[in-house]
Design a protein around this nucleic acid. Sequence first.
DNA 1: GCTAGGATGCTCT
DNA 2: GAGCATCCTAGCC
Length: 207
Amino acid sequence: MHRSHSTLGTPLRVADLPIETEALARALVGLSLGVRSREGIVGGRIVEVEAYLPESDPASHAYRGQTPRNAAMFGPPFHAYVYFIYGNHWCLNLTSEAAGTGAAVLLRALEPLAGIDVMQARRAGQPLRDLARGPGRLAQALAIAGDDNGAAVGPRRRICLYDPGLAARVVASPRVGISSAKDLPLRFTLAGSRFVSSPLPRLRAMV
DNA sequence: GCTAGGATGCTCT
DNA sequence: GAGCATCCTAGCC
């Protein structure tokens, strides 16, 4: 029989990834992400992420220091940082940098590959392209919520990264939905993917 | 395809 | 009380 994760690739040891935030963000694009649940492994290819840098990034939740909410960002690298936003949505990050430094990479969009029927059930039957296109949708499709905050990521864990053995061309652009440090090119997308949340950053009303 | 506006509740000031 | 690392719907092109 085939291994159950064959669509996603080979489980990846996080020790093979860089811990520096921008390097990690770039490295994640093109890898696969899978989340275990009773319904099986659900996930897909990472097509969009954003880096939230240590120390000097005013858009980062860690910018004003550690609080109960952002504590996971200051913990060890390669753990989930999950937060609740806009009264409705969960967002999933992978922590970066050594423990004591607050930084993370926001996972913004997936190309669904495994457990598509499960994602569709969780996402009210939405079309394939919209199942995990956007951070809130991604979390809903993968059933990520507050319980996952602080969890380690890796093989045999609930949340696991996979190497699909495919090359990835990565494009940098400004981050989406933030009000400070808008121009830094810290959003990284898989070139040509239809599963990216928006081809261009959403325009915000100017006052 | 696009834009605008509102929902929703937690976190920190 | 303000401000969100968002999403959905309605309306228009």
